[in-house]
Simulated scan of single mutants.
Amino acid sequence: MESSQQTTSTEQAEDQVRESQECEDEELRQLLAPDPSNLPLTPPSAVDSNFTSYFAPDFMKPGHDQYVYRHPNGLCIIGLAPTHVAFKDQGGITAVDFNVGKSDRSGFKVTGKRKKNAQHFESNTALCKVRTSYASYIVRCCVKGSLLEVNDRLVKNPALLNSSADREGYIAIIMPKPADWLKFKSSLLTLEEYKKMREKC
């Protein structure tokens, strides 16, 4: 009698292990070979996958719309939103100049883990000037933090702003302190809020 009870409990334990293994196998199958009907029509971009998108519409001046892509590690990529007034000028952006204020932003090189030589800027500090055939526009930091890098490729190839302002045409990378980011985040719009706002304009 005791032997048959032990056999039954052993079989039940084996059944539980088998069921658990089958569930894990099914989850793995769904990850490796997902249902095509549940997949998006276009795969998410690197920005969509790795960053949270925020927007600063009319930053300092009407039509000066900028984006802030924030990475989980705290880095913020700054650039021109697609609705920035500069893109409305015929011919688009023709030149980018990082020589603003008292210094050339592209001349500073940040080194090491401690980011030596990083400049600390306010959110309204000028990063660069972009020019079109008709006007020039100041692009600002948008967030208070340390300037780690500017995209100096834009000096030789300003057309990157016209073709891919949200990727290769970014302006700069800034590292804000967590406390400063939390303060400033509330003044930014999410992607959905930005789209709704600009659809009404």
Rank of each mutant, 00 (worst) to 15 (best):
V139H: 01
L148T: 05
Q119F: 06
Y170S: 14
S163K: 07
T52G: 03
S164R: 07
I174D: 03
A179W: 05
G107H: 14
T42R: 06
S164L: 02
V96M: 12
W181A: 08
C141S: 15
F98I: 04
V155A: 02
D166L: 10
I171F: 00
Y67S: 09
E149I: 01
V130M: 01
V130K: 03
S164A: 09
P72E: 08
T132R: 02
A118W: 12
H120L: 08
H71K: 08
A46E: 13
K88R: 14
F59S: 06
S49Q: 12
N99A: 14
I138G: 01
C142V: 15
D65M: 08
V143L: 11
F59L: 07
V68P: 00
K129N: 11
T83M: 05
K115H: 11
G91Q: 10
S136R: 03
V100M: 04
K102D: 12
D97M: 08
T132Q: 02
G91K: 12
W181R: 06
N124K: 13
N124E: 12
L161N: 03
N151C: 10
G63H: 02
P62S: 13
F59Q: 07
I173E: 03
R105P: 00
H71Y: 14
P178V: 07
D152Q: 08
V150T: 06
R140E: 00
V150Y: 01
A135R: 01
R153K: 14
P178D: 09
S106D: 04
D104N: 14
D104V: 09
C128W: 01
S163H: 09
D152S: 10
N117R: 09
F55P: 02
K61P: 01
L147K: 01
S136V: 05
K113T: 14
K116R: 12
P44Y: 14
N157A: 07
P57A: 05
F184P: 00
P178R: 00
H120Q: 11
K109I: 15
G91S: 13
A159Y: 03
W181Q: 07
A56F: 11
P57C: 04
F121I: 15
K102Q: 11
K61I: 03
G107L: 15
S133L: 09
K61V: 10
Y69F: 15
S103I: 13
S103Q: 14
G92I: 11
P82C: 06
E122S: 13
A172L: 04
N73W: 06
I93R: 02
G101L: 08
L154M: 08
M60I: 15
K61S: 11
Q66H: 09
K183V: 12
A86L: 03
P62L: 10
T42P: 05
Y134F: 06
K115R: 12
D152P: 00
V85T: 11
K129S: 09
N157I: 03
K102Y: 08
L160R: 11
V139L: 05
F98D: 00
V150I: 09
V96R: 01
K115F: 07
R105A: 09
D180F: 05
F55C: 10
R140I: 01
T52P: 02
G145M: 06
E168T: 11
A165R: 09
